[in-house]
Design a protein around this nucleic acid. Structure first.
Lengths: 183, 183
DNA sequence: GTCTATACATTGATAGAC
DNA sequence: GTCTATCAATGTATAGAC
């Protein structure tokens, strides 16, 4: 072969990362194959030597993005104190740069419309996130509630114009999670 | 004119409702003009005698869908008891029929990518929902937290395969909201 | 492995007949 | 107000040259 297996693996990896960022920013459905390939300096046809279909790409995006979320969660979570994590997750920075942020607020809705294989990968990634959070909180139900509230809050806040209402929503969710954690 | 103003208004209304249902089910971006028009027995070109663009349609969908959510919320909420509402909102029925359900889990992510006008309409609709919930709960922060958690829970649950994990998430959110409401 | 070329469907939107 | 026809652009995917 004219290109090494290593080169192929690197290209594939680069594609998954670029596609993940584009999908988190603009949505997976509206991220076109040609546009994606051109961001790594390749042409559209080459896509299919790395993935059998767009759906396989989505599967890999979900796997790797949720892995990244797990790592970030572990990094910012310690000593049964979730406040540092909340400050980051519910920040303006996270709202304003979805391409760099957690996949859950950006891609969950589209996963809900995807096939069973994608949902299964999503389920496994989410389970691990729940597991990590659970080690730091009082009980499993608290962990699920925290995930749902933070993901919902970021999603809703992004759909609001920057301003008082947006901030009130974020602050309220932060306060209520911290209040829950104290019981 | 060959068609009455009443006829035109009815057609427009029918389009907004159909498009809302399709967008909640499949996403707004992937809902095509031709496909939409054919569901009401018209052809694609006629769309633009009712809306100046797809964006104007999205604006109307958000306005009317959030109004519907407000009405449903008022109907199922009474006497400072949110349990009946939670039973409905976090039900398998709501998960499985997004076209008939609340617009928030389905359309919020896309509103986050829409223009300022759409976000403004979303903000006003969400404010009213918060207001309604706030009259039945102990404080405004509780109302925001409840909205974020329920919307997040439905969104996440739809992205999971039906099963234990999905049910654990729903049950946990329901329990935690009820526990919050008691304080 | 990546290229170009292509097939074919579908997108949002416009023009002009009726 | 709705039709048909059409536009340019873009969508996913495949075939064959290099």
């Amino acid at each position: 072969m004219r290109y090494s297996a290593k080169h192929k693996a690197e290209t594939r990896q680069k594609l998954i990362e670029k596609a993940g960022a584009l999908a988190k920013k603009d949505g997976f459905a509206t991220t076109g194959v040609d546009g994606l390939m051109s961001t790594v300096g390749l042409t559209g046809g080459a896509f299919y030597s790395h993935f059998s279909s767009k759906n396989e790409l989505l599967l890999e995006i979900i796997r790797q993005e949720l892995k990244k979320s797990q790592d970030l969660l572990e990094t910012n979570l310690s000593n049964h104190n979730i406040e540092p994590f909340l400050n980051l997750y519910l920040s303006q920075l996270h709202l304003n740069f979805p391409a760099l942020g957690c996949a859950l607020p950006s891609l969950t809705t589209e996963v809900g419309r995807a096939d069973a294989e994608v949902k299964q990968a999503f389920s496994e990634g989410l389970a691990r996130i729940h597991q990590i959070l659970n080690t730091q909180l009082s009980n499993p139900q608290m962990a699920w509630a925290t995930i749902a509230m933070t993901v919902g809050a970021v999603n809703l806040a992004r759909a609001l114009p920057a301003g008082e209402r947006q901030q009130a929503l974020l602050t309220a969710c932060q306060n209520m999670i911290l209040a829950m954690a104290k019981n």
